[in-house]
């Protein structure tokens, strides 16, 4: 079995996994980081979004072995102890979630949007950037509001 080593949320990790192990399986099953969700497994919903080397990626559409040496960030790595990340805080404040299933992927996508577009990102851009993230509960309105607020807070 191949051995794979990478950095996850700043910590070096490694494990022996079959080559057909998806990154999301490695995160959830090998590392026990179950914050990253699998909503569809057909690469469409974005519940599994994490950052690989600083870029948003669907962890259900990436093999763990492809991430050899990579820096991976998941939802578990965002908060600073008991202090929520500004984007998490914005989702809480603006009711950007209902059941919460899509939320880890939404927040990782949202942080990526803020990183690329800055604190003044407009509603149309946010909606367009959410093409790869599906929410079955909220109707998106509060998610979009939360991302705008979170991006502004991150810019401060």
């Amino acid at each position: 079995m191949p051995t794979v080593s990478m950095t996850v949320n700043g910590k070096s990790v490694s494990g022996e996994v079959p080559a057909n192990t998806l990154l999301v399986e490695f995160l959830r099953e090998t590392l026990g980081l179950t914050g990253t969700h699998v909503g569809c497994d057909t690469s469409q919903c974005g519940a599994c979004v994490v950052h690989v080397d600083g870029k948003a990626a669907k962890s259900c559409t990436r093999l763990a072995v492809q991430c050899e040496g990579a820096e991976v960030a998941t939802i578990e790595g965002l908060a600073n102890g008991a202090d929520l990340h500004p984007m998490q805080e914005a989702f809480r404040e603006n009711h950007g979630l209902q059941c919460g299933f899509c939320t880890p992927g939404m927040i990782m996508a949202a942080v990526d949007i803020a990183n690329r577009h800055g604190g003044k990102v407009d509603e149309e851009t946010i909606r367009h950037e959410l093409d790869g993230n599906i929410c079955r509960c909220t109707g998106y309105h509060n998610i979009v509001t939360a991302i705008a607020a979170g991006a502004a807070a991150m810019g401060k």
Partner: peptide, 9 residues
């Protein structure tokens, strides 16, 4: 093409 996550890979 697709969405931002697909375009990154």
């Amino acid at each position: 093409i697709g969405d931002p996550h697909v375009r990154n890979l």
